[in-house]
Design a protein around this nucleic acid. Structure first.
Lengths: 139, 139
DNA sequence: TCCTATATAAGAATGATTCATAAACAGGTT
DNA sequence: AACCTGTTTATGAATCATTCTTATATAGGA
């Protein structure tokens, strides 16, 4: 993820480009396993030692609101963040804290097709994310 | 949900039957909209004013571990609880904090069939819950 | 009824997240 | 290039859900 690309994501949404926002977005895009705010803070401090904890939360909130990133929550953990914009699902491990992205175009077609005709009374469907629970073989 | 039924759920799992556990299970089963620990605490205090906050969290943890109830993740809220044991999915509203249960046997058959043949490398699938995001018409 | 492992009460402690305020800054304007 | 002004960040206190510790109480088998 190039700096220019990140910069573009910010300006596109009318957000000012600041070193803190650049570093946080780079953290979310480069850290694997859906980092926590703390993971992101650690990453960012390498570049900007003076960054404030509150600033990280503040910026993450802004980025989620502007739909540049999204939140992922587990049954037990603290909030985690996801920089992947393409439609995808999540594999949750019952044994470890890894959350893996799961991409499946065929599945998405099937779901889209199924819900195209399916009316959920009183509800206006926007999108669907599968929580796929299981265990990784290595666990 | 009868008291005897709740009692049965506890003894089946080798848990002692206590007034606190009975009241908490009744709360989870009777409160709608996937109650928070606080919602449950309020309900339980009506019957047992002396109940301790820690006890509610403690018991909820036990009940989840024994798979009598489950946790529901949200992107923003605190932890919420679910007393429905049958396979089902969740409708999340983007406008309000309502989480509605969604039952769909046909969908479950389609998913089961799809993943029967589908191998997710390195992963042992256990179950799937759909997070269906959208808005209720009334919102 | 007694015994013992288990469960609960009380309230302090923790830890993630939010908030209030003052200082700093990005980016458009002159 | 320096200036403005609304936006953004730093600081550190505050909040709030949840967990932990320890002493007391209790469920249920013997």
């Amino acid at each position: 993820m190039e700096a220019d690309m990140i910069r573009g994501k910010l300006t596109q949404k009318g957000l000012k480009v600041t070193p803190q926002r650049m570093a946080i977005l780079e953290a979310v895009f480069s850290l694997n396993n859906h980092p926590t705010a703390e993971n992101i803070l650690d990453f960012v401090r390498n570049r900007i030692p003076s960054v404030a904890t509150g600033t990280v939360y503040n910026i993450l909130e802004t980025l989620v609101t502007k739909k540049i990133i999204s939140r992922v929550k587990t049954d037990h953990d603290v909030m985690r963040y996801d920089g992947v914009s393409e439609q995808h699902h999540h594999l949750y491990c019952s044994e470890c804290d890894l959350i893996e992205d799961y991409f499946d175009d065929e599945l998405d077609r099937i779901l889209k097709n199924y819900f195209k005709d399916k009316d959920i009374p009183g509800f206006n469907l926007d999108n669907i994310v599968l929580q796929i629970r299981g265990t990784f073989n290595k666990c």
